[in-house]
Amino acid sequence: MMNHSMKNQDINLASGTMITGKWHGKSYQVIKCLGSGAQGTVYLAHSPAGRVAVKFSKDRSQATTEVNVLKELQKVQGEPLGPSLYDVDDWVARGRNISFYAMEYIRGLPLVEYLKVKGFDWACILMIQLLKDLERLHREGWIFGDLKPENLIVSEPGFRIRWLDVGGVTLIGRSVKEYTEFFDRGYWGFGHRKADPQYDLFAAAMILVYAAGRKRFEKQQDSKKQLLEYIKNHKRLSSLQTVLNKAITGKYTRAKDMRDELLQQINETSSPQTRYYNKPVKPSRKMQQKRRRRKRGWMAMLVLGVFAAGLYILYLKLYVM
């Protein structure tokens, strides 16, 4: 019955369940559930090709859309953008056709969890990685759409940000169908929902806003002003204010521009938060006192600046480039 398409039963598979595709005949053995969301459930499974993630969607057309997107992403040269797609098939169980697809299993920590344990500095580094991938996607004529921490994972080893849920990927010029209010330009009153690179860059900025306060909040009367004020007054965000404001107001037409400016901003800012990476060179007590007296002693600035810059270059070399 069509009316219940939004409320289909959840699929619930025991570990060990064998799943065989009706069209391609490949078999998968369920290991465990990786997670479930509004759209479906994802299982870790054994396959002849090794461990894979198998997604069962509640809505079959949603599954088809996601598969179409994964196929498109696979055509993009370079590091994979979404999980690689292995197989698409139907499983006949209890007289029902259940469609599923098998994809690369990405081991790692969901970004939401990652942000809980790591500092804001990491959020910025991951954002720089993300912007690089977005630039590649945008150049192919697509945007991510529903960009939010839940759809991103920090893969291990290597701490590289990867995309999980690509159901929102949209051709530039079309309308964004899947979005999440806090990360949505339309919700905050900063523009329409027609897919353009700016739409993603707005969401990217909001991921940093979320990461800084580790919370989402609701809009109030004058939502635009509220958001810009929040950034201005937030201790972690104020140093990135220029970049964030530009992203939020749609001034960046390319992810690369935002990435370059964010990178530069992070390189230049040695905020108290960035210093804790730098334990060994923490200035002595005496030095701190002196610094405090002179507001910002240039020596300390220089030492810290050099170390922070050195460290960042190292990070960028290792994880971003």
Partner: peptide, 11 residues
């Protein structure tokens, strides 16, 4: 109003 934003983003 929100519906209008969404639908008017279509072609």
């Amino acid at each position: 109003l929100d519906l209008s934003i969404s639908l008017n983003s279509r072609m």
